[in-house]
Design a protein around this nucleic acid. Structure first.
Length: 590
DNA sequence: TTCTCCCGCCATGTT
DNA sequence: AACATGGCGGGAGAA
């Protein structure tokens, strides 16, 4: 083949899409990718504008016509797989945006990468080849590559060349990120943001405007101490890197997609198993804003766009799940971690994860085209997954590699959503978490300190799998009410018993929410200052809805009351009847 | 109307 | 200078 572009297959290239990034004469260091002889769907007439694979013409008159939401891609053996048969009855005029989604692209990216690296000892891939193979512009690939880099799945080796390392070691990365989160005091920060989130009348005070006077937010923010240990800057090797000049395009900083992705996972991993959930508001505030200087109000949605990109890729990999938390009439987006359990030695099979994701009835795509695509993806990765797994075992027969049976049992994460329909309350969870995590964080600091001090004496690996120790005989703490907001002038409430679990490493005890003690998060409520009187007992956050409690200073007990210091703000008129919905219900509304 | 997020411009880094 | 990378936000589709 003298010239790929001069070949009869050149029509396969989306010239418009690649004209900027794939100039004629691009030198391929690897074997040039040979396109299949007939990529076009057999029963689809040639379209001179969208020559390849376009299942349905894009309705948008995009001049660049860069995105080919092709429903056809290459199978494992290089043969073209089209979905045209499945979509023959689909209206070709209708192209859903979801058909071009980053998530779907990500899954196809996995397939393309797998095909590219199979049999390649270096596992090196050429981005342009992959982009062409997927018939998407290279720019779109970068978004996925960035996330993959953040997951240590690939790294750059040369211009346009990346080495695919796979996601087998994802559990270890998660363990590392969890440690990093602990060291950074991220759980504390998440907690503080969650607390503050409860303080703004989001609905009553539109974004960009000042919050209402009677929100508790100001109390919380002004009373929140700033400690060096919780400074917002990531601890990740910023020292060694030159402080980039005053540049809004903070390429290596916290706004980069890769950094944001890792930190997003860190936020999720800041929670104990089974409660690794975070709302979009909380995540974006923790990740995008500096709570120490920018306050706790969620950033504008425009600043959250990267988070959407990351989430879409992570969802596509089956690492997180997006659900909605229903509060009144408002749906709060909630990201739930459902990736592999952090573990230094476990292995992860991303194909199985994706396959499992796509096989789930609740994830059945909405349009026939998407369904056809995902069916093909499932079909393909079913083979890849098995092959990949067996290849992993063949290629990495090290002593550390767990046996096959063990891998299989570990790679399928158990769904943390078994009780996703139960009521729960962020704030109360956070309060419970905080107590646990304070203890754990303290413990981890001590452990790390000890390990650093006696590194030479202790050859044992840092996070060797620890057999679940007999839990110490500790009376479990009672259901925890939310910590009261810290309001200037109010004395601290007596501390609730701290969970003194000396659990090694970061094996969080499972937390099973008790529906009877749990209330939903309220991100839209007003504070009733009149209820906060020095002479009156203080209220708890659990007063927000339903059962009310307040703490009686004199008797050091919680008392039931009917008055609440907080009032839910409804959209529209205050006092209007809200449709009967269950507060705090988690819905998979997508 | 608000939420999502595709899309491509263009700044900056690299060759 | 040309190309590679990726931050960023406009604006359109979806809810």
């Amino acid at each position: 083949m003298t010239s790929l572009y001069g070949s009869p297959q050149a029509f396969f290239l989306n010239i418009e899409a690649n004209k900027e990034n794939i100039p004629p004469g691009t030198e391929l260091k690897k074997e040039p990718f040979v396109y299949p002889t007939e990529p076009r769907s057999a029963n689809r007439p040639a379209d001179p504008d969208h020559e390849n694979l376009m299942p349905s013409p894009a309705p948008r008159p995009s001049p660049a016509m860069s995105q080919l939401s092709d429903a056809s891609f290459l199978s494992q053996d290089g043969a073209t797989v089209t979905t045209s048969a499945d979509e023959a009855d689909d209206d070709p005029e209708v192209t859903s945006r979801k058909e071009k989604s980053l998530g779907l692209l990500c899954q196809r990216f996995l397939i393309a990468i797998n095909e590219e690296t199979v049999g390649s000892p270096t596992r090196e891939v050429h981005l342009e080849t992959v982009a062409r193979k997927m018939s998407v512009e290279k720019r779109r690939i970068y978004d996925i590559v960035n996330v993959m880099e953040a997951l240590d799945a690939m790294h750059k080796t040369n211009k346009s060349y990346y080495q695919w390392q796979g996601l087998e070691c994802l559990p270890k990365l998660m363990a590392d990120l969890q440690i990093e989160a602990m060291e950074e005091g991220l759980p504390e920060r998440v907690l503080r943001v969650e607390q503050a989130m409860c303080s703004f009348t989001e609905l009553a005070s539109p974004r960009g405007l000042k919050p209402f006077k009677d929100t508790v937010g100001s109390f919380v923010t002004t009373s929140t101490p700033t400690t060096p240990s919780t400074s917002f800057e990531p601890v990740v090797k910023t020292d060694s890197e030159k402080r980039s000049r005053v540049d809004s395009r903070d390429r290596q900083g916290r706004n980069s997609l890769a950094q944001l992705c890792r930190r997003f996972l860190m936020v999720l991993l800041s929670n104990p198993k089974n409660v690794r959930k975070v709302s979009l508001d909380v995540a974006s505030t923790v990740l995008i804003k500096d709570p120490e200087t920018e306050g706790f109000e969620p950033p504008s949605r425009s600043r959250c766009r990267r988070l959407y990109d990351i989430a879409n890729v992570l969802v596509a990999l089956g690492l997180i799940k997006k659900v909605h938390y229903l509060f009144g009439t408002k749906k709060i987006p909630l990201f739930v971690y459902c990736g592999p359990e952090p573990d230094e030695h476990a292995k992860f099979d991303v194909f199985q994860s994706v396959e499992r994701l796509l096989s789930s009835p609740q994830n059945v795509p909405q349009t026939p085209v998407i369904k056809a695509q995902t069916d093909k993806i499932v079909q393909q990765i079913a083979g890849f997954g098995k092959r990949t797994l067996s290849e992993q075992n063949l290629q990495k027969p090290s002593g550390n590699t767990p046996k096959m049976a063990k891998i299989k049992s570990e790679i399928i994460p158990s769904s943390p959503l078994a009780d996703e329909n139960k009521l729960f309350m962020f704030a109360e969870l956070a309060a419970a978490q905080k107590i646990r995590e304070d203890a754990i964080a303290q413990l981890s600091r001590t452990l790390i300190q000890n390990m650093q001090n006696s590194q030479s004496l202790a050859p044992a690996p840092v996070l060797a799998p620890v057999p679940a120790p007999e839990p110490p005989k500790v009376v479990p703490p009672p259901p925890l009410p939310m910590s009261p907001l810290r309001i200037h002038g109010f004395p601290q409430l007596p501390k609730l018993p701290v969970l003194p679990t000396a659990r090694p490493k970061f094996n969080f005890p499972d937390y099973t929410p008790n529906p009877t003690n749990i209330r939903p998060l309220v991100s839209q409520m007003t504070f009733r200052p009149d209820m906060f009187d020095d002479n009156k007992p203080k209220h708890l956050m659990s007063n927000i809805l339903g059962e009310s409690k307040k703490f009686n200073n004199q008797q050091n007990v919680f008392e039931h009351t009917t008055s609440s210091a907080f009032q839910v703000v409804k959209k529209g008129e205050m006092g209007a009847t809200r449709p009967k919905k269950i507060f705090g219900e988690i819905q998979n509304l997508q």
